[in-house]
């Protein structure tokens, strides 16, 4: 009954807000779909070498031949951006998944065990959180030879904290529900309760955290690459493209910085928009608590 009442209230509280949300969601879906399609289809279908150097055409402004212009050794920026997005997205998705799996495992363990284990784990999380995670990430990448995987590990190992907090809070609130009592009374072990009753209940939250983490991880990849610590510089990632463009920006060439920047910002905004809509769906009351 209560559910129906809330539904009705949502519908009647203004069609204008609703339609604005629909437009936002539609735009986000389009952008995300276009990004995924471009990243999956363009490199295999377009048989152009993104590394092709043409010094005669270096630093050309956007034109019909090169819609995004060319960089300082005459490589086509549109092609480089798509390839860069591919690398950045791969790193972002893998790192986000790693972080979410670690965070969910740690958070669920802390919440399900409670007591001293919970307190210990939470203090550990506080300790990690007190160090800026970019710094921690730099520390991790610095231990390995430059490449894709150190960046994934670095972002994955530094970004599970917020997910662990969310999952733990959720598990704590679920743990006191009568249905957990009923399961205990039915002879379920603690492991069974965690795996059969608690984990399935927190999965939507964890999946949402993973989606929100993708743009964040992409930004971190870019930040590390920009600092020269991330991916090797021949690999076209968005961070590397922005890093390479730094010199030309000072010389007045804006396009090598602007387009990779847009490629980074627009899809991440779209993902954030989608995640926001999803969050409102699964949990209309707790919007503020889930900000990452």
């Amino acid at each position: 009954m209560a559910d129906t009442a809330v539904e009705t209230e949502w519908r009647s509280c203004g069609t204008r807000r609703r339609s604005a949300r629909t437009v936002r969601v539609a735009a986000s879906v389009t952008i995300v779909a276009a990004t995924v399609l471009a990243v999956l289809l363009v490199p295999p279908l377009v048989q152009l070498d993104q590394q092709a150097v043409d010094l005669a055409a270096k630093l050309q402004p956007p034109s019909w031949a090169h819609p995004f212009g060319t960089d300082d050794v005459g490589r086509d920026l549109l092609l480089r951006c798509v390839h860069g997005l591919r690398v950045s997205l791969l790193v972002g998705v893998t790192a986000a998944l790693t972080a979410t799996v670690i965070g969910t495992a740690v958070g669920a363990t802390a919440g399900a065990l409670g007591g001293w284990a919970d307190r210990g784990i939470m203090r550990l999380i506080d300790t990690f959180s007190s160090v800026p995670h970019l710094l921690l990430g730099i520390f991790v990448v610095a231990m390995f030879r430059p490449g894709v995987w150190p960046v994934v590990v670095s972002v994955g190992l530094t970004h599970w904290l917020s997910t662990a907090r969310i999952v733990r809070a959720e598990v704590l609130s679920l743990r006191s529900r009568p249905y957990i009592d009923a399961a205990l009374s039915g002879g379920a072990s603690r492991l069974r309760i965690a795996v059969r009753h608690l984990l399935p209940a927190v999965l939507p939250q964890a999946a949402l955290a993973a989606v929100l983490m993708v743009p964040h991880a992409m930004w971190h990849e870019s930040a590390l690459s920009f600092l020269g610590l991330g991916l090797p510089s021949h690999l076209a990632s968005l961070g590397n493209l922005i890093q390479n463009a730094r010199g030309s920006l000072l010389a007045g060439q804006w396009w090598p910085t602007l387009f990779p920047g847009l490629f980074l910002i627009v899809p991440t905004l779209a993902v954030a928009g989608l995640a926001g809509a999803w969050r409102e769906r699964i949990n209309p009351r707790r919007r503020s608590e889930l900000m990452l």
């Binding site: 249905y179 009374s185 603690r190 009753h197």
Partner: peptide
């Protein structure tokens, strides 16, 4: 969960609110 399983399962419990007592 620390109680022996045989002891726990010797009780059948029905709670007041079925919505909260069912997964």
């Amino acid at each position: 969960h620390r109680a022996a399983r045989a002891q726990r399962t010797a009780f059948g419990v029905v709670f007041q609110q079925p919505r909260l007592a069912a997964d």
